[in-house]
């Protein structure tokens, strides 16, 4: 079988395209759907807006350390308190970032930490209350240098 010049190019282009598509899964990152699925699973339904506030920089120059603060309005009594807050990052290889577990002895449901972000993406915080209700806040963070290494 002989290829004309044009056919040779077409075949080569096909291989390149296949190669790129085939490599994709090894560098797969979480998608927004994956993150939302995880949110739904944790919250047991669609979380409501309000009561929770997530503070993160709008632009993070270095994705290796992005400071984030989450705080939830709650009286923090035995009957009514925040049980846990989960942070998700929907563009990281694994959408889970950290789970904070609070008790009435925490006094306030506030916590700060520093996280890694691979690229520009949404950071999502979901709080679960002792009465089973859940609340969500979302912030987009623009990342200049990704934080997951080569």
């Amino acid at each position: 079988m002989k290829f004309t010049r044009r056919e040779t190019f077409a075949v080569a282009a096909g291989f390149v395209a296949f190669g790129v598509a085939g490599l994709r899964p090894t560098t797969a990152s979480a998608t927004e759907e994956d993150a939302m699925k995880a949110v739904m699973e944790f919250a047991g339904g669609e979380p409501q807006a309000g009561r929770i506030s997530l503070t993160a920089p709008e632009i993070a120059e270095n994705g290796n350390t992005v400071p984030v603060t989450v705080s939830v309005e709650s009286p923090m009594t035995d009957a009514d308190h925040v049980q846990s807050v989960v942070l998700y990052a929907d563009g990281n290889p694994n959408p889970f970032v950290i789970t904070f577990n609070f008790t009435p002895m925490s006094g306030e449901a506030t916590a700060t930490t520093r996280i890694r972000l691979a690229k520009t993406q949404n950071v999502i915080a979901v709080a679960k209350m002792s009465d089973g209700s859940s609340f969500m806040d979302k912030k987009q963070v623009k990342v200049t240098i990704g934080g997951c290494g080569g």
Binding site: F100, R114, R116, L117
Partner: peptide, 19 residues
């Protein structure tokens, strides 16, 4: 009082602030 489950997405030298 407070506890956390940490994933690899937390930065090196993990810093935590809580009440």
């Amino acid at each position: 009082v407070f506890s956390c489950d940490i994933e690899p997405a937390v930065s090196a030298n993990p810093y935590l602030e809580f009440t």
